[in-house]
Design a protein around this nucleic acid. Structure first.
Length: 260
DNA sequence: CTGGGCGGC
DNA sequence: GCCGCCCAG
């Protein structure tokens, strides 16, 4: 499907205003009352707003370019159980990937926004099972180091006030594709973090090769700037310049443990 | 829906 | 052992 700016405008225009308000409200840090639109720039024609996360959909790759969401303790401490109700995302006007694309492929339907971080209510849990939130991940990667990173982000959410997460595939030089819709198998995945604690901001990012690994998570730390260079996505472009410069160059994981 | 496998704390 | 991530039937 050919990308057009027109479709982008329609996507925004057709998005219920309350959705947008809701999304922006989520980007307010309660402690500082600082408010901003924290979504990255989009390379593709469809930016889709669900209630608990937003995504930029790449039709040619049949998956999101990035998925962005905010976490606080409330988001992850709920008692909502995992639903496994995988389903196509009807908000993707060009049609999202289908369950059949993954069936028998040998690849997991790997969450980009994890179900384990969507426990605040049934809506969030259910939304996390849209196929637009899936990427073909090898079982060893999805159930191993990728899961460990998700758990670490949940831990950091517990000891900080809020964490803004952007997660996605690295789509250049893919490993192949699966299914009738030719869903791209990414060679690697990234995760960028913007954390707030006592009104102070900090950043961190990870790039992980799409392979099983028993290595320490910290071996895969990069700066947000590094992710921007590879993906050509501008993260946090609406954040105050001074904060942006600081958080986007950080590679020191200690900032995330001592609450600086 | 159930049962089972994988990976890791 | 248990749980979170999935799969097939």
């Amino acid at each position: 499907m050919k990308n057009t700016l027109f479709i982008l405008l329609i996507t925004f225009a057709s998005c219920a205003k309350s959705d947008l308000q809701n999304v922006k409200a989520q980007a307010i840090d309660k402690r500082t009352s600082q408010s901003f639109d924290f979504y990255p720039t989009s390379t593709y024609d469809q930016v889709i707003f669900h209630t608990y996360y937003a995504l930029s959909y790449s039709e040619k790759d049949e998956q999101a370019e990035w998925i962005a969401y905010k976490l606080t303790k409330e988001n992850i401490d709920g008692d909502i159980k995992r639903t496994n109700n995988f389903k196509a995302d009807k908000k993707v006007t060009t049609e999202s990937a289908q369950l059949s694309d993954y069936k028998g492929s040998g690849y997991d339907r790997g969450h980009l926004a994890p179900a384990g971080s969507m426990k605040i209510n049934k809506t969030s849990m259910s939304e996390s099972f849209y196929m637009s939130n899936m990427s073909p991940q090898s079982p060893g990667f999805n159930r191993g180091i990728w899961k460990r990173l998700e758990e670490k982000v949940r831990y950091w959410t517990e000891i900080n006030d809020s964490v803004f997460v952007v997660s996605g595939p690295i789509l250049d030089n893919p490993l192949g594709n699966i299914g009738n819709n030719e869903v791209t198998i990414p060679r690697a995945y990234f995760k960028t973090l913007l954390g707030y604690k006592n009104g102070k901001a900090k950043g961190l990012a990870f790039i992980m090769p799409h392979a099983k690994s028993g290595e320490s998570l910290y071996k895969f730390i990069v700066s947000i700037n590094d992710v921007e260079e590879i993906t050509e996505i501008d993260f946090y472009h609406n954040v105050d310049k001074e904060i942006q410069d600081k958080v986007e160059s950080n590679k020191d994981v200690k900032l995330w443990f001592i609450g600086k």
